[in-house]
Each structure stands twice: as structure tokens, then as C-alpha cells.
């Protein structure tokens, strides 16, 4: 008899995965939730205030874009595209695209999206480049930060929306934060890579002439890494644009809002039109920044 029971027990061990008890598991999850909620109650407000300047800036930029008469914006876009790309074709294309967008009644949403993308890009650059520099300087920092970047890029965005919303509620700032979490890894990675790829001989020459750390960084490393850093900026903008729809789920205005409405109400035309507007923005950003990046490496490329 005893023998039989042991066999029975052994079998169940192989058939069913040994798991945590139901009650234990519930307490475990509850414990985490509770402690995060406590954290939110304790620090939520302080953290919100911390992001206030960002909120004011975003709101100000949105207002600026929306309140400026459209012909002036159009001229500004044409000038920026032309000086970024030095291409007449691209400039005309951009103006035409924005004329169509306005004609199809997507002007306001497009301006709101432009505002949040601009702020997100500025935040990503000003946080991402210093982190990338730190990673290039120390191997320890690199091994520490690389897995974090991997997680940020692969974790489904809905998952980190949960703590962000718990902490900051629904609104522009949590939306901006979500966009930045998703979009910052490329600029960090490419800043690190770009600096590490700087020619060792040039660095040694700089060292041999007695350059200090900041003279090496600002005079040699950053300028020579600039094409790579710029490729990072380009990717960051692209990824920020692809987050527009998800960000609109937690209260960010812009082209994502009508797309969401189109999904829940099965409005095909509305969804496609706004989706295409996002695509147009992406293509414009991409072409202009690539042309600009090419010009940056004019002299560095052809060195032996």
C-alpha cells in the first residue's frame, strides 16, 4: 500500500508543475500591489510636481503650434525641412503633405502630435546622451544598463502603462513618460556605440597632446560620434511616433485619438486617414534627419 502511494505522488510531480499555493500566490501579488499603492500615496504627488515643468512646456508648445496661423507654420516647416535636407523636392513634398493633412481636417491633431513628439525627443536626447556617454566611459555601467535597455525595448508597452498610470494618473505627463520609456533606448545605445567606435589613434593623439577629459569628450569623441548619435535621434523619433496611438489611450491628444475612436466604432476611413498622417510625419522626419546626418559625416567618412 505504502509503495503505491509513493508512486502516485511521484507521478503527479511529473504531470503537474510544482507551483506556489493559490493563497500564497494571491498574497504575493497583493503584497506587491499594496506596497506600490503605498508608494504612490506617499510619493505620487511629489513625483507629479517633479514633472510639472515638463507639463508646462508641453502645454505651451501645443498652444504655440495651434494658435499660430497655419500659413506661418507652413513656412516654418518648409524652412526647417529645407535647411535640414537641402532638398527642394523634399521641401515641396512636405508642404504638399501638410496642405492635404489640413484640407482633410487633421491639422489640429497633427499639431498636437508634433508637440508631444518634439518634447519627447528633447527629453530623450537630454537624458539619453549623458547615459550613453556614461556607458561608453565605464564597462561596468555598460553591463548594468544594457539589460535595462533590452527590457525597455521588449516589454509590451501596456505593461509599463500600469505603474505609470497608477503613479501619475491619466494625462499628458504619463503619456509623455510612456513614449520616452519606449523611445529612449536607441539614442542611449548609439551614443555609447558611437563613442566606443571613435578611432583609437585619434584618441591617443588627443591624450598625447595633454587633452583633459572634457577636451577629449567635446573636442574628439562627441564630434566623431555625431553621425551615430544622429542615427540614434532618428530612431528615437520613429519609435516615439509609433507610440502615438498607445499614448492616446492614457490621455495624450493628437492623431492617436481618432485612430482609437475608429477602432472602437469601426470607422475605416477615419482610421486609415489618421494612420497615414502619422506615416507621413514619420517619413518626413526620417528623410530630413537622414539627409542631415549624411552632411554631418561629410569629412569623417572618407578617412583611411
Amino acid at each position: 500500500m505504502a509503495h503505491f502511494f509513493i508512486r502516485e505522488k511521484k507521478l503527479s510531480f511529473f504531470v503537474e508543475f510544482p507551483k506556489m499555493g493559490r493563497a500564497d500566490l494571491r498574497d504575493f501579488k497583493k503584497g506587491i500591489d499594496e506596497s506600490f499603492k503605498d508608494f504612490t500615496r506617499e510619493y505620487g504627488e511629489a513625483i507629479e510636481h517633479f514633472f510639472d515643468p515638463l507639463l508646462y512646456f508641453l502645454v505651451w508648445l501645443e498652444k504655440l503650434f495651434l494658435n499660430t496661423p497655419w500659413p506661418i507654420i507652413m513656412v516654418a516647416i518648409a524652412v526647417l525641412v529645407y535647411f535640414g535636407s537641402r532638398s527642394l523636392k523634399l521641401t515641396i513634398g512636405a508642404v504638399l503633405a501638410f496642405l492635404v493633412i489640413g484640407y482633410l481636417d487633421m491639422w489640429e491633431d497633427t499639431m498636437a502630435t508634433l508637440a508631444i513628439i518634439s518634447v519627447a525627443t528633447i527629453v530623450c536626447i537630454s537624458v539619453g546622451i549623458p547615459i550613453g556617454i556614461l556607458m561608453a566611459r565605464s564597462n561596468r555601467a555598460q553591463t548594468l544598463i544594457t539589460p535595462i535597455l533590452d527590457v525597455m525595448q521588449t516589454i509590451p508597452s501596456f505593461v509599463y502603462l500600469i505603474p505609470v498610470v497608477m503613479l501619475l494618473g491619466i494625462g499628458k505627463v504619463p503619456g509623455l513618460l510612456a513614449v520616452c520609456i519606449y523611445a529612449i533606448p536607441p539614442i542611449v545605445r548609439l551614443t555609447n556605440l558611437g563613442i566606443r567606435l571613435v578611432d583609437k589613434d585619434v584618441m591617443e593623439a588627443s591624450e598625447a597632446f595633454g587633452a583633459s577629459y572634457s577636451q577629449k569628450l567635446l573636442g574628439v569623441q562627441i564630434p566623431l560620434a555625431l553621425p551615430n548619435i544622429f542615427a540614434g535621434v532618428n530612431q528615437t523619433i520613429m519609435m516615439a511616433l509609433s507610440m502615438v496611438v498607445i499614448a492616446s489611450m492614457i490621455g495624450v491628444k493628437g492623431l492617436g485619438v481618432p485612430v482609437l475612436r475608429a477602432i472602437s466604432n469601426q470607422y475605416l476611413a477615419l482610421g486609415v486617414m489618421n494612420g497615414l498622417a502619422i506615416v507621413v510625419l514619420a517619413i518626413l522626419f526620417d528623410r530630413v534627419s537622414q539627409k542631415f546626418g549624411k552632411r554631418l559625416q561629410a569629412h569623417t567618412e572618407s578617412m583611411k
Binding site: D201, A205, S206, A208, F209, G210, G219, L224, T300
Partner: peptide, 22 residues
């Protein structure tokens, strides 16, 4: 002191030139 030594006392020429391409 080492930095000052490199700046004013001893300068170097390299096999692969080590010029700043930009």
C-alpha cells in the same frame, strides 16, 4: 603635472597620423 608635461614638454607624431578628421 603630466598633462602639462604632455602639453609643453613632449609632443608626438604617429604612424597612422592620428589627425582629427573633422
Amino acid at each position: 603635472e603630466l598633462r602639462n608635461f604632455r602639453r609643453s614638454k613632449a609632443s608626438m607624431v604617429f604612424q597612422k597620423f592620428g589627425l582629427l578628421p573633422h
